[in-house]
């Protein structure tokens, strides 16, 4: 079977994902079932997917991983990811992270990163540093979502910012799909899109829990202290 049709059975066995990641429907396939289906991938492709996961998942990154270490990790994975035709997807996502990092750093009044400082990812690092004080780092035309992201960040709207970034990733992945192909790249695109839906649902669940807690406390008012006393 040609590479083009390498995973035709795997992709046909995966349920269609919704048109938008922000719907209220449950996940079309659970994480366990998806994991089970992805076992059909060849050993090298499974390895590539694992590398992708370690690059994109905060759970694997941890907070103590330095940018240098992260970039090193990316450089090690890049040749294999390029060979399997998925490197461009990762690069675009990492460049987006870099731009949001730049917005955050500037908001904290940090100076422009110095030349040679490993602070982000992508071909426009020097350009962004050189245009640090420009409203959109001189790349607003290349990344139309950047102005909206800046507004959300400046007005402390993390949920809207999260939604915008997620929407942008979703749009990128939808554009990257090729309906006549059933190869590893298509599997990765499916997997990334599934992750976006799962991330939004998780985010929503956490936000809902916080809202419920706040509503309970507000509803209880002074009685909250009374009940707290009873517990003691």
């Amino acid at each position: 079977m040609s590479k083009r049709h390498q995973y035709v059975d795997l992709l046909a066995s995966l349920p269609a994902l919704p048109a938008t990641p922000f719907g209220r429907e449950p996940l079309p396939i659970s994480a366990i079932r998806l994991e089970h289906r992805l076992e059909a991938l060849s050993a090298v492709h499974r390895d590539s997917l694992r590398r992708l996961e370690t690059l994109l998942d905060w759970q694997h990154l941890g907070l103590d991983v330095s940018t240098d270490a992260y970039l090193q990790r990316y450089r090690q994975a890049a040749p294999q990811l390029a060979e399997h035709g998925v490197n461009d997807l990762v690069e675009t996502m990492l460049e987006r992270h870099t731009l949001v990092t730049a917005l955050r750093r500037r908001r904290l009044d940090e100076p422009a990163p110095g030349l040679g400082e490993a602070w982000g990812f992508g071909p426009r690092l020097a350009h962004i540093s050189a245009h640090w004080q420009a409203s959109l780092f001189g790349v607003g035309a290349v990344f139309p979502w950047l102005s909206e992201a800046r507004d959300h960040l400046e007005h402390d709207r993390p949920r809207e910012l999260e939604r915008l970034l997620l929407e942008e990733s979703w749009r990128l992945l939808t554009r990257a799909r090729r309906h006549d192909r059933f190869d590893f790249r298509e599997v990765v695109i499916y997997w990334l899109r599934w992750r976006l839906i799962a991330a939004w649902q998780r985010y929503n669940a956490e936000a809902a829990e916080r809202r419920l807690q706040a509503d309970i406390e507000r509803g209880l008012g002074d009685y909250g202290a009374l009940f707290a006393g009873e517990r003691e």
């Binding site: 079977m1 049709h5 035709v8 059975d9 795997l10 992709l11 046909a12 066995s13 995966l14 349920p15 059933f182």
Partner: peptide
Amino acid sequence: GQAAIGALLE
């Protein structure tokens, strides 16, 4: 045929 087999699962 492989696509059909995959679709049977779903």
